[in-house]
Design a protein around this nucleic acid. Structure first.
Lengths: 131, 131
DNA sequence: CAGCATCTTTACGTTTACGTAAACTTCCCC
DNA sequence: GGGGAAGTTTACGTAAACGTAAAGATGCTG
């Protein structure tokens, strides 16, 4: 039997640089489901993974509701054809969103290149004027 | 002399699938600076570009404040060394953010691959049970 | 056993990004 | 010239995602 590692709310907060309030809020929103030892919350590695997913989602601009959906794509989920079809639909949706974001990022990166170019050229101009 | 094309608020709203309220709000927040003909707002192509940037930013999870900063990277901006250095700093910041997002997207894409795999395999199982 | 850290619940406050509604001009059309 | 259609300002409302504060339980620690 493999005993799982556990985490306290404070440990997770420290590790991910967020407040305990935030972690409890995520639970409130149905994104985390810690165990309890009396009153105290006990987090399993699976909760830690979910937390990682949430924070990654945030960096990409996902709402908590969207991250909740995402997390549910990991739980084996549906057992009948209908649910599995729905699941594949969701996955396709997320994929499309990611594709769009990829394009957006590439566009922005290019614009950063150009902006840097312009800035460097302006610097060069200043150098020349000072000779 | 090249006369610029202009847009009404309604035109832009329709084109970008947002409300006029949203467009006025962006102006309020200092992201757009339309001309006026009497009371009526007149938008130039530059405003349209800014709007595109804002919406792209939103898709990547930027706040309006961050998009405002981004837009300012396009305006030739600083004329002295200090400002240009600051500009280059901002650009580097944005670049780092984009790099992180790229990684996040790639991770998510892979997880979507795996989720799809699992879903398809579950489907196959159902098929077999029904033979 | 007093004290400090860490945990808990409850609850009101705050920021961001608009939505929604009211009340009013302006312009065009029949 | 009486309606729309599209524009305007002003203002209150709202959802999301926490922040912040109060008040209390729990547990170790010198």
């Amino acid at each position: 039997m493999t005993t799982q590692k556990t985490y306290s709310i404070g440990e997770l907060a420290r590790e991910f640089q967020i407040t305990t309030r935030t972690i409890r809020f995520y639970e409130d929103q149905g994104l985390l489901h810690p165990q309890r030892r009396g009153q105290t919350r006990i987090y399993l590695p699976s909760d830690r993974v979910a937390l990682k997913l949430i924070l990654r989602g945030k960096r990409l601009g996902l709402s908590l509701a969207e991250s909740r959906e995402l997390i549910q794509l990991y739980i084996p989920a549906g057992d009948n054809r209908h649910q599995l079809q729905a699941l594949l639909g969701k996955i396709a949706e997320k994929r499309a969103m990611l594709e769009q974001q990829l394009k957006d990022i590439q566009a922005m990166q290019q614009e950063m290149d150009e902006a840097e170019q312009r800035a460097r050229e302006a610097m060069m101009q200043l150098e020349n004027n000072n000779v």
